[in-house]
Write a protein that binds this DNA or RNA. Structure first.
Lengths: 368, 368
DNA sequence: CTGAAAGCGCTAACAA
DNA sequence: TTGTTAGCGCTTTCAG
């Protein structure tokens, strides 16, 4: 205890045994005399010993942490408006030095996206019971991406949970190339020998179509997400397939980028082009929320005049009035499963990649 | 390169120098012949060498990561409604095993709080330029808290950024007790020799009062946050002081818990008790959003009939209609400063604790 | 300016 | 069952 923390050696001395025995007690505890175990534990308590993880990692080649990598820039499943846009009246910002990195805007407000919070909740919820901790990495530039790879290769984490933000993320390929265990949230754009979890987006779109038709909507429109990301495209095609199946081959569409703002713009345009519309499917809740606002401003009542269905079932779905009928994506469960897959893979690196596809469900509230 | 990664030894051999020289080049690079530097760098590139962090940490006693600890259970500055409440119609949840730990509900949806996202953004934004990564730790139970302390003591991270969620969090004291460098977001409830960043909440309340009075409001009410947390109390007293200073000694109040739901309830009650009210101050944006909903349902126009001011300037402020006039808390800047203080403290553990108080600003939008 | 050598604290054969 | 002994890969005196 002279300056530094007690070491195995110290504990061994106090307990009157060898380092190896103490080590055995602290870890597996297999094949150690009951009596000695007690003695060792007492010595551990007395000395206040905690194992030094660096030393342990050095020999076990395990860190007990995984990287949670948010990769790619721009929007994804949903991205809220940053809180510091539209600051019409900002005297002065206090004393803080706004050291926010190259993009200036504090990581593009990616982290305030409700989707991100749900992923974190799911990941942390699962990992904590395993004594594993996630280290957060933002890989939104080429530089950041290779830093992330280096980070993993240095053995700072045993594997990576990857949430890709945009269409062609090179990171999954980079990771598999260097043999880092990794699992993706959402299928990779290009086929890759890598595990992932995903949602049956197509089915989700169909659920929305079924609901709108069941309500008797005659003229429905769609506010799509970015069509270059699978989630955006699949939700739309699923919806269109569903409508077609019910005898509505044509569904007018406006593309948004998963933000409330673009949802508003899309709604305004659709309303202008199709004044008699009576049903709207938005590819995520944020855009649905935007649609609600515009509909309200135009004197349309929801759901009486126009029925609205969102996607995700995230916070905005409950914050809206009326609350959103929406296609639920069980993000927390998916994230937990992603973590489970990663831990399994770290345990058995040789095993083949796995994919787990979750089924969406329709959550009926007030808007449809 | 046989199975494992190349080591310093490998690089040294390729470069024809000693390990020590390679080490010098890779680190400080001081006092090494230019020529040799080149040679070594070439060897590094050729071998694809990356330093093993465990080995390095073992001797330097540094990890290059810090813990971002979210401590305490329940609500804080703001907590959105969980996305999976009110699921009226949930067929089945897919294939995932909902392994969410003891609380079942995936960490109490703490992570979907917009406040949390902003803290993360600020922290990551600052740390990334320093090559430091945050590891996320949820310390919402006594067990989790001592695990967190153990984690830090094991040398898994060089220090801790602590965001306390409720009033009497024992973690700050635990951390200082074992000598782990730490910085808090928000002043500790009990005086402690520990650094922190905070907002001048009182001033923020005053700004709101000034605005409401300037608009000519005659009967204002307050929707307070939990009064047992400093932020909740200070915002209210600041507001009341401000009103008193303008000749309004009495301000009716209803207490909420920083959620939209409690904001709605509080607004309903205040409206009932004071039908002629014409101004509302809510201690955060989420509650203000709730107030807006109730006001609207009761046929009051905002801001014509009733002016509403929120607090935080987080995402909901922009999502609301009208958008919220609100007291801005520069969370990202504050979080970045928190990270800066921590790094400084890690560098110089002997230095005295510091506190940095940020000034709030009024952001004027549509609601007041 | 460079190399040799001594550990950092731990785990894991290998003996006993 | 327990102890002894090598290292894991790196930094860092200390000589040269």
């Amino acid at each position: 205890m002279s300056g530094g923390l007690p070491t195995l050696e110290d504990v061994a001395r106090v307990a009157g045994v060898s380092r190896a025995t103490v080590s055995r007690v602290i870890n597996g505890t297999r094949n150690v005399d009951r009596q000695l175990q007690e003695i060792v534990r007492a010595a551990v308590a007395k000395t206040g010993y905690v194992p030094n993880r660096a030393a342990r990692s050095l020999v076990t080649r395990r860190t007990g942490t995984v990287a949670l990598v948010v990769s790619g820039a721009g929007a994804r499943g949903s991205t809220e408006n940053g809180p510091d846009n539209g600051t019409d009246n900002g005297p002065d910002n206090g004393t803080g030095d706004s050291d926010a990195g190259p993009d200036g805007g504090y990581a593009g407000h990616l982290f305030t996206d409700p989707f991100f919070g749900r992923v974190v909740a799911g990941v942390v919820g699962f990992l904590r019971t395993r004594g594993v901790h996630p280290v957060l990495i933002l890989a939104d530039t080429d530089r950041a991406r290779s830093d992330a790879v280096a980070f993993l290769r240095q053995g700072n984490a045993d594997g990576a949970l990857l949430v890709s933000i945009h269409a062609d993320d090179p990171l999954p390929a980079m990771l598999t190339a260097v043999g880092v265990p990794a699992v993706l949230f959402a299928r990779p754009t290009r086929p890759l020998p890598i595990s992932y979890v995903d949602l049956a987006h197509h089915t989700g779109g169909r659920l929305a179509a079924d609901r709108l038709v069941a309500r008797g909507c005659q003229q429905v429109v769609a506010i799509a997400g970015p069509l270059d990301v699978p989630a955006g495209l699949d939700r739309l095609t699923g919806f269109r397939d569903g409508m077609a199946r019910h005898g509505h081959p044509y569904v007018p569409m406006a593309e948004g980028s998963f933000t409330q703002e673009t949802g508003e713009a899309a709604m305004a345009r659709l309303l202008d082009e199709h004044p008699t519309l009576d049903g709207v499917f938005a590819a995520n809740d944020l855009m649905a929320q935007g649609a609600l606002v515009v509909l309200h401003e135009n004197g349309r009542r929801v759901p009486d005049d126009v029925a609205v269905i969102g996607f995700d079932d995230s916070a905005p779905a409950l914050a809206s009035r009326p609350q959103l009928t929406t296609v639920r994506q069980p993000v927390e469960d998916m994230a937990a499963e992603m973590a489970r897959l990663l831990l399994a893979r770290i345990e058995q690196p040789a095993q083949r990649p796995t994919s787990v596809i979750f089924e969406p469900t329709l959550v009926i509230r007030g808007s449809a």
